[in-house]
């Protein structure tokens, strides 16, 4: 080993990061080289002086208080869950509920099939009854609204796949043209700067077989997808639906239908989407 190599390695050697063979070779070189010995002494002195003189800051009490408050907020919204190896809170809770409802449905269906088999001659009529009842069960568990189901499925897929956002921006002036360039309609984009809802970005998703503007908002730790499409494409639908534990809230305004999907309380999501629609209708001038 020569001095040129040694100089680079001396720092790593002083940090204890050289492998045994390299450390041994360097040690031999340094023993016989005054310049490298001086370099080593210099580095050690620098390290010692840094550790003695340079501040290592500690978190001030104000920061600890803010973090505590953040934890309180985060764990007040979703129920405590002992499983440590599951997906993030909102989707995990929803997945547990989905499994439960599917199991319920399967049990119910099996009971109905047995009854049908025994009845025999009325198979056709009974099948119609079963299907009708099954639809009723689906409606009770899944809401009477195909679009709400599709919206939730899109939301889950995007969240689990980690691709809720294609264009990340909190600026509606960036998002609106981005969306307009990719859709055959102009979706209004609204910011709510005085609220805990933060516009985070957008993507283009699909709903009812058609591309749809999807705005993404963050509320504390929650991700809210808002699907915005022309009212002409949408029929009528309930203002609030629950699908697999997710809230789907609907509002209309500015000739558009707004569907928000998130794992947050229905009144909150309903108020949020109402505000989006009304602020669009009122017209944020620069957004048009």
């Amino acid at each position: 080993m020569n001095c040129a190599e040694a100089v680079l390695a001396i720092g790593a050697w002083c940090d204890g990061e050289l492998a045994d063979d390299a450390a041994a070779a360097l040690s031999v070189h340094v023993a016989g080289c005054a310049e490298c010995r001086a370099e080593q002494a210099s580095l050690v002195a620098l390290r010692d002086e840094i550790r003695a003189q340079v501040p290592r800051y500690v978190a001030p009490p104000s920061l600890r208080a803010r973090v505590d408050a953040e934890l309180a907020r985060a764990f007040a919204d979703s129920p405590a869950d002992a499983r440590a190896d599951a997906p993030p809170a909102p989707v995990r809770a929803a997945a547990a509920r989905e499994a439960f409802s599917l199991a319920q449905l399967r049990t119910w269906w099996t009971r109905e099939r047995r009854r049908w088999f025994v009845a025999g001659a009325f198979a056709g009529a009974l099948l119609a009854v079963v299907v009708g009842a099954l639809t009723g069960v689906v409606a009770r568990h899944w809401g009477s609204d195909d679009i709400a189901v599709a919206a939730v499925e899109s939301h889950i897929a995007a969240t689990l796949g980690g691709h809720t956002i294609t264009v990340a921006s909190s600026d509606r002036h960036q998002i609106k043209p981005w969306l307009s360039a990719r859709l055959d309609y102009a979706a209004p984009v609204v910011e709510l700067p005085d609220s805990p809802f933060v516009l985070a970005g957008a993507r283009v998703d699909r709903l009812a077989g058609r591309p749809v503007a999807t705005l993404v908002y963050h509320y504390r730790l929650h991700v809210i997808d808002v699907f915005v499409r022309p009212l002409a494409d949408a029929g009528d639908a309930p203002a609030v639906t629950m699908v697999r534990g997710f809230t789907v809230a609907r509002a209309t305004g500015a000739g558009m239908e707004w569907r928000a999907v998130a794992d947050v309380d229905p009144p909150l999501l309903a108020a949020f989407v109402e505000r989006l629609a009304s602020e669009s209708a009122a017209g944020q001038p620069a957004a048009r």
Binding site: Y57, L63, V67, L71, F75, A80, D81, A84
Partner: peptide, 21 residues
């Protein structure tokens, strides 16, 4: 252990390091 306690036990001990960085 709840999620909150788990987070506090694993992550919060490094709050000083976090603030320093």
């Amino acid at each position: 252990m709840t999620d909150r306690a788990s987070f506090e036990a694993q992550v919060l001990p490094h709050l000083d390091a976090a603030y320093n960085l």
